[in-house]
Design a protein around this nucleic acid. Sequence first.
DNA 1: CAGGATCCCCTACGATACTG
DNA 2: CAGTATCGTAGGGGATCCTG
Lengths: 131, 131
Amino acid sequence: MNILDPNCPSRVVFQRVGDKWATLVIQVLEDGPLRFSDLRGKVAVVTPKVLTHTLRALERDGLLTRTVYAQVPPRVDYELTALGRTLLEPLKILRRWAESNVDQMQLAREAFDEAQDEAVLAGSASVGLAR
Amino acid sequence: MNILDPNCPSRVVFQRVGDKWATLVIQVLEDGPLRFSDLRGKVAVVTPKVLTHTLRALERDGLLTRTVYAQVPPRVDYELTALGRTLLEPLKILRRWAESNVDQMQLAREAFDEAQDEAVLAGSASVGLAR
DNA sequence: CAGGATCCCCTACGATACTG
DNA sequence: CAGTATCGTAGGGGATCCTG
C-alpha cells in the first residue's frame, strides 16, 4: 500500500491527528477516564456538539470507549483503549518536535510575510515582480 | 505554554500534519528537490491551485525553499530545509504507527457501524434505545 | 448532566479554464 | 512549465437554544 493511495493508512491517521480536538482529547485522557463535562472543562472552549462529534469519531476508530452509567443525573465516562494508548507516544514525539521548533517556524513566517509585503509595495510602484 | 492554549505550538504543527497534502509533499521531497510538475506527477490527483497553496504554506513555515531559475521554459525547484528535514522522523514514526494499527482501526470502525445499524433497526421496531 | 437540533459561516479542496 | 483566476461545493467548526 502506497502513501499516494487515498486509502493509505497514514492518510486516515494524519487526518485524525489534524483534527482540531481529537489529539487534545487523547492527550487529556492519558491520566485516566473522564466524564463529558470534565472534558469540556479541560478543553474549555469547545462546544458540546463538536466535542460529541470528536468523541464519536474516536470511539468509532477504537481509540476510546464510552461507558454510560444508568443513574440520575446521567454520567458518561470516556477512556482510552489499549489502542488509543499506543498513539500517545507518537503524539508526544510530534509535540516535542513542535515545542522545539515552533520558534523557528514563527520566525520563518514573519520573514516570509514581511518579504511578501515588500513585494506588494514594490509592485505598486514598479509594476509587479515575478511571483 | 499549555496544550490548551490555542496558540500552543503543537496546535499549529498538528494542523499542518493534518493538512491533506502537506505531509505528503514533505515525504516525497525526502530524496531531494523536485520541480512543480514532478510533484504533481508524484501526487497525481492534486490540482495545481491546491498544490501551490500547500507549497506556499510550507515555504512560509520555513519547511521548504522555493527556487526559481530564470530560464525558458520556467523551472522552479522545491526542496526541504534543514528544519523541514527534522520533521521527517516524527512523521515516519506516525506513519509506522498508522501502518501497524490501521487494520485494528478498520475493524473497530466496522464493528461500530454495524452496532449503529442494529440500534437503528431495533429503534424502528421498538421505539429507540438510549443514545 | 450529557447531549441533540438548528442555523450559519468560512475555509479546504476541487474542476475548469486561462497566461507569462 | 508553472502557475493564476474563477466558480462551486462539502463539511468542519461554532453559537444558541432545547431536552431526557
